[in-house]
Computed example of a mutant assay.
Amino acid sequence: MTGMKEGAGENPFAEDPPDDTGSTGDSTTETSTESSSGGASGTDSTSQSASGSSRSGGRRSMSIPYKFRRDGVQDGRDRVPLFLKPDTKSAERDALRELEERFDADVSLTDLREALVMVGLEHLDEVEGELEEWGYGMRFED
């Protein structure tokens, strides 16, 4: 890397070098390994990373968020078909614009969709209510 100042190409999210116990160096490796295995494990590693700082006994360890450690938006994700009704698609587009304004940055539609699914999984009672409005749970008995 000619012409660059020393350290200019270093990762700003890199962790501090491990201390004598070696406790901080392993969390990034575990997080990266888990995220590359696919599926919802990327979100598991995110929640593990957030709790990792409390487990380190007061010493704060930083792990790299999924957005910055992936090679592309599809990295570590399984492709699943998604078919949306027009009003849902419109609401999704409005939510994307709203979040882009809040972050003052572009938000990936793929990231938004997974975040919506994850929040829905955490609020199954509300999902149940929506499904009931669509007719789930109705009985047609004599």
Rank of each mutant, 00 (worst) to 15 (best):
R113W: 01
G137K: 05
G39K: 02
N11M: 00
Y136Q: 01
G58H: 12
W134T: 02
E141H: 00
D142L: 04
V73S: 11
T110D: 10
T46W: 02
P81D: 08
G3W: 10
A95E: 05
G25Y: 01
T21C: 07
M1A: 15
M1C: 11
E126M: 04
Y136F: 14
D125W: 07
R69P: 04
E133K: 12
G120C: 06
G58E: 00
A40P: 01
G57T: 11
Y66I: 03
E6W: 05
F13Y: 12
A8R: 11
L109W: 03
D94N: 14
S63L: 14
F83G: 11
A115Y: 02
E114Y: 09
E132V: 02
K67N: 07
R55V: 06
M138W: 05
S45V: 02
G39D: 02
G58K: 03
L116P: 08
E122V: 03
D111N: 07
E130R: 09
T31N: 00
A8N: 08
R55C: 03
L82H: 06
D87M: 10
A50L: 14
E114G: 01
D104Y: 04
S61L: 03
D78T: 10
M4R: 15
R55G: 12
P86R: 12
S23A: 07
E92L: 14
G137M: 01
P18E: 09
N11D: 15
P86L: 07
P86C: 06
D71I: 03
D106C: 03
